[in-house]
Nucleic acid binder design. Structure first.
Lengths: 131, 131
DNA sequence: CCAATACATGAACATAGGCTCAGGTATTTG
DNA sequence: CAAATACCTGAGCCTATGTTCATGTATTGG
């Protein structure tokens, strides 16, 4: 196990240097004077984009099916009760986020989860929502 | 222009059970005939709603700051370079998802992460994106 | 009490995203 | 080849959402 949670945020060098005048409450920092830098904007955008892929019921249900076994597109569509077009669009998003992989067999395309990360996420969120 | 969108068209609730064999490729199920049911729609919506809260750069940067220590609202606003109003709106979303907690001290409100779940998620996603 | 600070909230505007529709590509079949 | 199947994709419609702006509430200070 040993999930290493590096308590240090990773990216420095982001000085908010806008010409904005400063507030007063800045003197009340409860933490030490150590620079606590936020996540950089570009990386926060990449991460938000990733979470956006998970922020859709249809895609989550696709993932839940693929967690059980692999399926071809039309089976996924039928089981979710949505059009093949919609499924195909959503699978494209999942592919883009490297959440699923596929293999072709004749004219069918079988999709499966890409790796275990998504299952970990799934479990953690279920745990959070169950509380 | 008005198409047949009479009802909500959001949740068809099409209960395709065993009788309705529409597609042809259904016979290629790789799994056994066991019912592989997808995540139920209501739960998938709750989960999507939760991921939606994480699907925003500003909120992720707020979380990254709060992972280091607690902060009052105007400090968060200053460090991210966004308005206090925007921060307040986003903190509301984070509160709703039980991702942050707050304590009042005078006229200031100090926010901190609610529990460890978000840090786990954060780590898993960083790992996924780093590959 | 009145002004200022710190934060919250509703409305409005601009953008992003999911679905349907209408094709398009690739593979199998007659 | 031509039709059918399985899947992909661009365009457009409609809804959801993040921000700003203006205002409201609570606490501190003169």
């Amino acid at each position: 196990m040993a999930r290493q949670t590096s308590s240090r945020t990773v990216l420095p060098t982001r000085r908010v240097s806008s010409g904005e005048a400063e507030a007063v409450c800045s003197e009340h920092h409860s933490g030490s004077g150590a620079a606590v830098e936020p996540l950089e904007l570009p990386e926060s955008q990449r991460m938000a984009e990733f979470f956006s892929v998970l922020a859709d019921p249809t895609r989550l249900r696709l993932i839940s099916l693929l967690a059980g076994s692999e399926f071809c597109v039309c089976d996924l569509a039928e089981r979710l009760g949505v059009s093949e077009s919609a499924v195909s669009h959503q699978l494209r998003a999942l592919r883009g986020a490297r959440l699923v992989r596929y293999r072709k067999e004749g004219r069918q395309v079988f999709y499966q989860l890409h790796d275990h990360h998504i299952v970990d996420l799934y479990g953690t969120v279920r745990e959070h929502l169950a509380e």
